[in-house]
Structure formats: C-alpha cells, structure tokens
C-alpha cells in the first residue's frame, strides 16, 4: 500500500487535534467524567490514531509526525487502559473520618504486629534498665532523661510557666517535623523487607520502656503519666501506624497471603493505603506537636497532674473509638 502523505496528513490531522484536546482536558482535570458518547468518540479517535501510527511506522521521512502520533497514542493508551479506580475529588472530611480509619482497620493485623514489637522493645528496655542501670546512657540518648527522675521532677515543678514562653511555636514545629520524618522513615524502611521498620519500632519501644521503668522505680509514676500521656496518647499510636504502613509494604514485598499475585500487582494494590495511612499519621503528629509544646511541658502547680492524665486518657479513648468505629462498615 502506498500512501500519499500530504493527503493522508491533511485528512487525519483533524482527528489528531480532537484527540489531543480530549487528552488535555482529562489531564488537566483527572476527576472529569466523560459521558458514554464522549467515551465512544475518545475510543474511536484513539483507535484511529493507532492505525495512523501503524501506517506511518515505515515512513522514514516523517519522523516528527511519527513522534507526535506516538506521544498521542501513548497518552491515550494510559487513559483508556487504566483499570484502577478513578480518583474522586478530594474531600478532606470524608477522607479523614471514613477512608483513613477504614484503611487502618483493613490492615489492623500489621498494627497489632507493630504494637507487639513495640511492647517487646519496651519489656527489653525495662528489663535492661532494672538489671543494669548503666545501660541508661545507651538506651536514653537524651540528656534530660539521664538525670535522676526525682531531681528532674523537682526542677520541672519549680520552673515557672514562662520557661518556653518565647519558643513554644518553634518547639512545636520542631517536634512535628522530627516525628513526621521518623514516621516516613518507618514506612520507607518497609523496603528492607520490614527489618528496618521492626528495628526502629523495637528501639523506640526500648527507650520508652527504659524511661517508664526508671520513673516508676523512682516513685514518679504520676509525673510520668502527666508528662507523657497528653502528647504520647496520640504520638505513640501515630508511630505505630507508621510502622503499620512499613509492615504492609514489607508484607507486599514478601507476599504474605498474596504470594500468587505478581510483585508489581501486590505493590500497586497497597500504594493508595500507604499514602492514606502516612497522611493520617502526619495529621496526628501535628496535633501531638501542639499538645507537647503547649500543654505537656507544664507541670504542677501550673496544671494539676490529674487534669493532664485525664486529658491524655480522653485523647486515647477518642482515638481508639475513631480508629475502630469511624467510617462504619469496612469498605473493601
């Protein structure tokens, strides 16, 4: 078959321009829905452009037109053969109160695993500090934790409420960014088949366990609860959720329960859930950062411990209810 190129291009150019127009519209607004007539037309134009490209494949002198058509066909191919769920317009409230808790519940086993690892780390830290008080310097890499708990409590209770007066916002943003970085790292370490995530969670558990036992043995349990609960009630679960996402990623890599599916399919299926969980974690850590900077650092006599403990318990209860009940029935 011999083609009169000039005539061929003249006849087909209109269809190519029309296809390009539809593609640009879909690319600018991914949420745009075509009606059935538009879908048929789009499919027709894609097939026509594909056929045109096939015809032009052997023409050495029409490099530019071939490249243009190749680009059109590849873009249209991406739109037409896309079989994953189409994205809806982002609704923050729906996402937070429905998608996020549902995603958490869908992968709750990974959360239990993360919690188990953290508790094991906590037990290890507690046992280590009780058998070898010298391990404190290794397990607690923060200077304010290495002093005697009772001395610290006395010092904290004596200090005025103006201690962080001109640095609360800075302290809060530092906490938020640092904790978010750690959470993202816990997720990313899932790519080490979860080994990195497990080590990170275990280590955090060990620090927590060591600190807790140190204060309990010193008879400062009330201070500890009042100091940690207000922000820890959200911050620690947030880190666990980040670890949960890391373990989900590791599970997809290893193929736990889904070994029959190809690796790429397994990873593709969890990518949306990972994003939801890590964004949820970020929201939780913003809250925890505010609470830690503006509330947790004040002790008696400024704020009674009962108030702080009550506030922390209420947060924990609400968070538990939110994660297990919000969004109703599980959407699969």
């Amino acid at each position: 078959m011999i083609i009169d190129l000039e005539k061929f291009i003249g006849e087909e150019r209109g269809y190519w321009v029309e296809l390009e127009g539809i593609l640009e519209m879909l690319e600018k607004d991914p949420g745009h829905r075509l009606d059935i007539g538009q879908v048929r037309r789009f499919h027709y134009l894609y097939q026509r452009a594909s056929a045109d490209l096939a015809k032009l494949m052997t023409f050495s002198s029409e490099q530019k037109i071939r490249e243009y058509l190749e680009s059109l066909v590849s873009r249209a191919y991406g739109e037409i053969h896309e079989s994953r769920r189409t994205p809806h317009r982002f609704r923050p409230l729906k996402w937070f109160f429905l998608t996020f808790p549902q995603t958490f519940r869908r992968h709750v086993q990974a959360f239990w695993l993360a919690l188990g690892i953290m508790l094991a780390g906590g037990a290890f830290g507690g046992v280590a500090i009780s058998f070898d008080p010298g391990a404190k310097q290794i397990l607690m890499p923060f200077s304010h934790l290495q002093t005697d708990p009772s001395e610290r409590v006395k010092r904290e209770e004596k200090s005025s409420d103006a201690r962080l007066q001109r640095a609360k916002a800075t302290f809060s943003s530092t906490l938020m960014t640092h904790n978010t970085k750690v959470s993202v790292f816990a997720l990313a370490l899932g790519m080490t088949w979860g080994i990195g995530t497990v080590i990170l969670v275990f280590y955090n558990g060990a620090i927590l366990g060591a600190v807790a036992l140190d204060y309990v043995l010193a008879g400062e349990s009330k201070f500890l609860a009042g100091w940690l609960l207000p922000h820890g009630a959200v911050e620690i679960p947030a880190i666990l959720l980040a670890a949960q996402s890391g373990l989900i990623l590791a599970g997809a890599l290893i193929g736990w329960g889904t070994a029959s599916l190809p690796l790429k399919t397994r990873l593709r299926e969890i990518s949306g859930d990972l994003m939801t969980l890590i964004f949820g974690v970020a929201v939780m850590l913003v809250w925890a950062g505010f609470v830690e900077a503006f509330f947790s650092q004040y002790h008696e006599p400024v704020i009674p411990y009962e108030v702080k403990i009550g506030f922390g318990m209420a947060e924990l209860l609400l968070l538990t209810l939110f994660l297990w009940k919000s969004g109703g029935k599980l959407e699969i």
């Binding site: 993202v184 990313a188 790519m191 990518s271």
Partner: peptide, 21 residues
C-alpha cells in the same frame, strides 16, 4: 507508570517518601 498507564497521585507520594531510604 511502569505499564505506561496514567500516573497516580499515590504513586508520586510513595516514590518521593521512600527517598529517605
């Protein structure tokens, strides 16, 4: 996208968050 399909927002987020590793 590795299959030539439309690039999803979640794919962009995941590939960029994993920069830390």
């Amino acid at each position: 996208d590795a299959r030539g399909l439309r690039l999803k927002f979640s794919q962009i987020v995941i590939r960029n968050l994993l920069r830390s590793v």
